[in-house]
Design a protein around this nucleic acid. Structure first.
Length: 269
DNA sequence: TTGTGTTTTATTGCCTCC
DNA sequence: GGAGGCAATAAAACACAA
């Protein structure tokens, strides 16, 4: 074993050059400006293969790789030091107990920093996923808005075409119809998922009449008035099928199929 | 070689706990 | 009040590009 082993004779370390600040309150600012190392004696210094000849005892010295190795192993088992363990380690390493304590202190700080970095990176990736999910929901929302507008216009055109020439009550304009649609009169979207996802127009043919809500499996998203959904759910007919309930001009109130679970959008685990 | 950024060792002051 | 922990910081040691 080389002479700088952490099992070296502690008596050598207790000899002469130590300036060990046992009671930290003892050193005032003036004294601290004349800092001296408390690790090495002359004997240790010159026996230590890890260091060059130009190291003088006045310089701060790093711990040897072996010392660090043992400290790391000890830190792995328990990152806090009880007094007994500190004394024992210090003896083994030929260090002052204070040095061991300082090393553990700094090691805990490094460990905490690393942990914070890991946490930050996790949080950031969660946030990025959240953001991309939000964007896709925003797109859905946009699509559905134009869908509603288009349907309202069609409806008005249809009613104008069939209205009688005389004694007719004036029809509401498209915006009024749209507003009325907004007031909880939205029928479930008749567009099937594959249709909606295709690049084609979302405008429907006449035979694609609005349907009543019957299944959430076939349609995505199903636009369901809240009261209708509650009725639907109260009937117990939904059986675990989740519906994408959209307030067309407001917030999404439940996760879309295949989005929330996989992307972790609805909460971090 | 030197300037610069990073890591490690150590100190200080404040806080909490017993 | 003393011991020990932590955050902030200083300063030496080290790494590395120019």
């Amino acid at each position: 074993m080389e002479s700088n082993s952490f099992f070296f004779d502690p008596s050598a370390a207790h000899g002469n050059m130590f300036f060990f600040q046992g009671a930290r309150s003892m050193m005032n600012m003036e004294e601290s400006s004349k800092r001296r190392p408390f690790f090495c004696s002359h004997e240790d210094l010159y026996d230590d293969d890890d260091y060059n000849d130009d190291h003088t005892p006045d310089k701060k010295r790093r711990l040897t790789t072996q010392q660090v190795h043992l400290l790391e192993k000890s830190f792995e088992t328990e990152n806090k030091l009880e007094p007994d363990r500190k004394t024992e380690l210090a003896k083994k390493l030929g260090l002052q107990p204070r040095q061991v304590a300082v090393w553990f202190q700094n090691r805990r700080a490094r460990s905490k920093t690393k942990q914070l970095e890991r946490d930050f990176s996790l949080l950031k990736s969660s946030y990025d996923q959240l953001l991309s999910n939000y964007d896709s929901i925003l797109n859905d929302n946009h699509l559905l808005r134009s869908q509603v507008t288009s349907l309202a216009e069609k409806l008005q055109a249809k009613e104008e075409a069939t209205k009688e020439p005389s004694g007719q009550v004036p029809e509401a304009n498209p915006q009024q119809q749209l507003d009325s649609v907004n007031m909880n009169h939205i029928e479930p979207s008749p567009i099937k998922t594959e249709d909606r996802l295709s690049s084609g127009s979302t405008v429907l043919d006449e035979e694609d009449a609005p349907q009543l809500l019957d299944s959430c499996d076939s349609y995505f998203p199903s636009i369901v008035p809240i009261h209708q959904l509650e009725e639907h759910n109260n009937n117990g007919s939904d059986n675990d099928r989740s519906c994408f309930v959209v307030d067309v001009f407001g917030a999404t109130t439940s996760p879309p199929h295949g989005h929330g679970e996989s992307l972790g959008f609805w909460g971090w685990t």
